[in-house]
Write a protein that binds this DNA or RNA. Sequence first.
DNA 1: GATTAGCACTCTAACATCTAGAGTGCTACT
DNA 2: AGTAGCACTCTAGATGTTAGAGTGCTAATC
Lengths: 348, 348
Amino acid sequence: MKHVDTEQRCKRILYAIVESYVDSAMPVGSRALSQRFRWSMSPATIRNVMADLEEMGLITHPHTSAGRVPTDKGYRVYVGSLLEPRHLTKEEESLISKVVSRRYEDFEGLMQNVSRAIGMITNEVGIVLTPRLKRTVFKQIEFIPMDSSSSRVLAVLVTGSGIVRNSLLELEEDLTKAELFRMSEFLNQELEGLFLGDIKNHLTRRLLQERDSFYAFLKKAISIFSRPGFLRAEDKMYFDGTAGLMSHPEFDDMKRARSFLKLFEEKQDILDVFNEDMEAEGVKVHIGKENACKHIQDFAVVTCNYKVKDRAIGALGAIGPTRMEYGKVISAVTYLSELLGKALEDLG
Amino acid sequence: MKHVDTEQRCKRILYAIVESYVDSAMPVGSRALSQRFRWSMSPATIRNVMADLEEMGLITHPHTSAGRVPTDKGYRVYVGSLLEPRHLTKEEESLISKVVSRRYEDFEGLMQNVSRAIGMITNEVGIVLTPRLKRTVFKQIEFIPMDSSSSRVLAVLVTGSGIVRNSLLELEEDLTKAELFRMSEFLNQELEGLFLGDIKNHLTRRLLQERDSFYAFLKKAISIFSRPGFLRAEDKMYFDGTAGLMSHPEFDDMKRARSFLKLFEEKQDILDVFNEDMEAEGVKVHIGKENACKHIQDFAVVTCNYKVKDRAIGALGAIGPTRMEYGKVISAVTYLSELLGKALEDLG
DNA sequence: GATTAGCACTCTAACATCTAGAGTGCTACT
DNA sequence: AGTAGCACTCTAGATGTTAGAGTGCTAATC
């Protein structure tokens, strides 16, 4: 008997529906699909399969006589088990290397350009989060007194990834210039190569072994690193491609366009998704209702962390309508996370 | 005879047309206007005046039987001679002080919040340019060697407005730590209070008076300030309110929305307008075709410079459809330019 | 039993037609 | 000069119609 594996066929058809819908944004009918398979199945057969898929909740009807559209769950299956991995084409890679010059001038520019590259390749909005300070390694710290009394001091912190962070300290206890100098010398020697997130613990452990005058000195050091906002608050997010996204037909409805743009003004919702994903390995995809935040539930988010010296220190990705070219987006995000990691390593 | 000054009447009617159209986005008819004037003029009279205004090029018809709409020129007359200055309401001021806390934490946040405040008050996109470095005064410079050989040095420049600018220098000539220290000491004493833009000239003048070993030293100092990108390239632009803007009916056409968003991705066109206006005094308004850049010709831009110690150092403003509440926008932009100036002075 | 052809049915998008109403410009009257 | 009246124009919205794409079901076929 010529009995084809029905499960196999279901998959092929779901695959075709997603691809076709992603491509054209039009509901997919049985006839068109049959053509796509070079008439190896009749429209009627396909209709039967479609009815099954609908039963399973993988596709829907907008209305009785329209074609089928994938549901969030449908996309999920597509991404999870149907989509074969692909790589970027040579053209895409060369486009990226044109936008993200290996020889970056400044840190901000690098972030901006990576987000732009993602946006350009995927036609969705590209997003890059700055490295979490706590996950980068300490390299150097210097104190610059801003007035004669040394009560206002500018701390300049340099990390292994070449990030430079300024922080204005208003010190209650007066420190003489000499003391400040001693402080930086001590810290630079003591903390070399430590992760910024581990510094406070390290110093506290050190404290337990010491006493006398050095004890007070260490206390001061710890208080500096304990200042609120000294290591935090650098959750900066770069994004690019909002204009390009407006060409998608899903934004013909202004209300959606507006709520989408609002995401980028409030930022927090997006940051939450990326921060959460930073822990896990590799590419993560959140489709529609899978998102915890309800403002994002109309959209899909693809994220990936990027690493320096095998340690995940930040995240990047893309966001757009659930109807997106997942294959392309995933490969772009993967590629650029590696690129960014390497770029930051060079800088270190 | 009861003959009213016709010029006066023209003005009143143009004024009413603009106000009404700005408010409702609907072409204004003679009947509605007559009502607005409590029937002190008949629709027919108003029609005659309207015909005159159209002759003068201040208003137009979208089509034969539609009401009138102001032209760019009409808005220009309205802004130039009809609009009486207004101030922000108490509510608006308190909204601003909620968004822009007088006690800002960081420079970036201040910029971001000012642009947000403009956006929220005006319902257009608020824009703030960072202070031009060259126009701020020198306060302090320090050099931090990044490796033992001192060939890579991080220069930290602090200005009078509290801006801190980092710049990684790759020095060809090796400078010993001692030399670097001498250099910063010398510069800090020599340049105190100078505008950054004047530094190179100042040092060069100084050079002519000196000779011997100090000559070479000065040469090195000059070369540092001559590095491309050391004082430039900080043309950063903050903006906020793109989401709010999408509620304007003029963006129902996605193509316009897209071209508008593109302005903020390319940035340069907007920067040009603001940079140009920074020289002139007070608020500047560019309406539609008045803009040199053709991508902006569908929109209106309101700009104002902001000052620290009576010197214009940066610019801020708003951008939106030509149909905007010019009175409100102008007062918001004025108010916030003063606020920002003061905030930066406090920081200095 | 799996697949397909055929058919009746449904729904939408696109087009054409019509109408009410708002607005105009002109002319003649006050 | 200002106004009322009137014929005319144009659009937005309502209504009606149709072609086409798509479905689901049943019966025939492999």
